[in-house]
């Protein structure tokens, strides 16, 4: 059958939903827009970053928002030698689990270094922030992605000394 011409129709799946983020996830995104990071205190007192709405063990509703640092330690990392469409970079980079200062759980993000040899578990990294949105009277630069309350408001993490 393989010599039969197969009809192919392209089909792009979209994700065209808008949602409200609520008091916990919303607090995280609002903080990102302002240039800092928050988590939430879990039932056992640990600080969960990014914040979870319900405790992963007790299922208790969590409400105590806690500010944490924007630098921390790499807990694990994966070197993406060939990036895929949608990835934070179109060049080699690392995905990493980063435990921010003051947090008890790591978060997933990208680390921008030139080569895998510059990555190691336990290394210190810091957030590289996108610029704050200019005020109403200020000039908006062409092609700049400003902070808007999105996980990509942190463009990536970089080795702490490089920030």
């Amino acid at each position: 059958m393989s010599d039969v011409e197969v009809m192919i129709a392209p089909n792009v799946i979209e994700y065209p939903f808008r949602r409200t983020t609520g008091p916990v996830i919303g607090a995280f995104f609002t903080a990102l827009r302002e240039g800092f990071v928050v988590g939430v205190r879990g039932s056992d007192g640990r600080v969960i970053v990014p914040p979870a709405e319900y405790d992963p063990v007790t299922a208790e509703e969590l409400t105590e928002i806690v500010e944490v640092g924007d630098a921390g330690e790499v807990v694990s990392w994966a070197w993406v030698a060939e990036s895929l469409d949608g990835h934070p970079f179109d060049r080699p980079f690392a995905f990493a689990l980063v435990k921010l200062d003051g947090a008890d759980t790591p978060m997933l993000h990208a680390v921008d270094v030139a080569a895998a040899e510059q990555m190691r578990t336990g290394m210190r990294v810091a957030a590289r922030w996108r610029p704050a949105r200019p005020g109403a009277d200020d000039e908006v630069a062409e092609g700049v992605r400003y902070r808007e309350g999105h996980i990509a408001d942190i463009e990536c993490f970089v080795p702490e000394g490089d920030r």
């Binding site: 994700y15 939903f17 949602r19 983020t21 996830i25 995104f29 990014p50 807990v75 694990s76 990392w77 994966a78 070197w79 993406v80 895929l84 469409d85 949608g86 990835h87 934070p88 995905f95 990493a96 689990l97 978060m107 997933l108 993000h109 990208a110 578990t121 999105h150 996980i151 990509a152």
Partner: peptide
């Protein structure tokens, strides 16, 4: 769709994070 989806962390990359742990 909030914390992970926008970064498009693919299945192999996530498994790689687990393997390194």
């Amino acid at each position: 769709p909030y914390y992970l989806g926008p970064l498009w962390p693919d299945s192999v990359s996530l498994a790689a994070l687990q393997a390194r742990c």
